[in-house]
Amino acid sequence: MTERTRLLDRAIIGGRRFFVGLSASRAVRRGAGLWLTALLFAATGIYGMERGGHMPAAIETARDMGDAAANLAGFKIANVNLSGQNHVTPGDILATAGVKPTSSLLFLDAEGARMRLEQFAWIKRATVQKLYPDRLDIQVVEREGFALWQKDGRINVIARDGTVIAPYSDDPRYIRLPIVVGDGAQTHVVEIVDALSLVPGVRDQVRAAIRVADRRWTLKMRNGIDVRLPEHGLSDALEHLAVLDQRKSLLSRDITVVDLRLPDRVSVRLSDAAYEARQAELKAKAKTKKGSSS
């Protein structure tokens, strides 16, 4: 039994007792008795609709009747002023706010409409104002696409606060957004995007930032190199990487991994071809050294 049902049970029982008590009193006039009888029947009807699951339909019908009466009285919504929308269509805004062609300004719940609009993924804030007798103003502030988040093979556009806005599409507005990957990447997206913005020479070479165990980042560079970043000191590590790339063209070398997780050293892993070439070079040097010593 729901809380609403329990309350209605109590109201019906209390109403019956009150009605019986008043009916037995000589002080009750006939008019009062009629009103109490009507109220009791109304409460009983509401109770029955609640128990039968018909309450939503009854409320909707009552609202429509109220709107019809209010419209006849001059409170029909004749002008709707929408502002701030870019991604969200006017139809979506009105439908979400609960504004129908038959809605009246008098019975429109402005606060409820605002709350429903702010549950819409694209809408960050909304303002709903009723200007009597027939004007409705709705202003929205939309979220902006901040990054693309890839997880479980799906890519979504996310806002700066990590809110998923929409599935990725070929919309030109999304093509240049940074890409983050993995669990937790959406909630830490500002951290990596802002840090990379300070080293544009590195940022422009990044294909995606991968969140590892929701503790640190690995950058997947466009040429295939993985840059393993530390859990702490992210900005310092990226600045160090930028200096190494500028002075020694680190990110253009034949390597597969740059490991910056230790603060006092930088480790690299050569590609297979570079490793074999290095081994051959070392053997040649050793052979030359041995020949010269003999």
Score class of each variant (00 low, 15 high):
Arg211Phe: 05
Ala195Glu: 06
Leu270Phe: 04
Val164Leu: 15
Asp134Ile: 00
Asp152Val: 13
Leu105Trp: 03
Arg247Asn: 14
Leu108Thr: 05
Ala24Lys: 09
Leu251Tyr: 08
Ala69Trp: 02
Arg269Asp: 15
Asn79Ala: 02
Leu39Lys: 06
Gly145Thr: 09
Ser83Tyr: 03
Ala57Arg: 14
Gly31Gln: 14
Ile165Gln: 10
Leu117His: 09
Ser23Glu: 15
Asp236Ala: 01
Ala69Asp: 10
Leu270Cys: 05
Asn223Gln: 04
Arg6Asn: 08
Ile46Pro: 02
Lys285Ser: 10
Ile165Phe: 05
Asn71Lys: 08
Ser235Gly: 06
Ala38Trp: 05
Asp236Lys: 08
Ile123Pro: 02
Val99Ile: 07
Gly53Trp: 00
Ala38Cys: 10
Val20Lys: 12
Ile77Pro: 03
Ala213Gln: 14
Gly201Met: 10
Ala78Glu: 15
Lys130Asp: 03
Val243Trp: 14
Val189Ile: 14
Pro200Cys: 06
Ser249Arg: 04
Pro178Gly: 03
Val193Gln: 05
Ala242Ile: 09
Gly224Ile: 05
Tyr47Cys: 07
Val206Cys: 07
Gly48Arg: 04
Lys290Ala: 15
Pro172Ile: 01
Arg211Cys: 11
Asp109Phe: 06
Pro167Phe: 08
Asp9Val: 05
Lys290Val: 13
His232Phe: 14
Thr5Glu: 15
Thr102Trp: 04
Ser169Met: 09
Met55Gln: 13
Leu219Asp: 09
Gly53Asp: 01
Pro178Asn: 01
Pro167Arg: 04
Gln205Leu: 14
Ala11His: 06
Arg51Asp: 05
Leu36Asn: 12
Gly45Cys: 06
Leu234Cys: 07
Ala11Phe: 09
Val20Glu: 15
Asp259Arg: 07
Met115Asn: 12
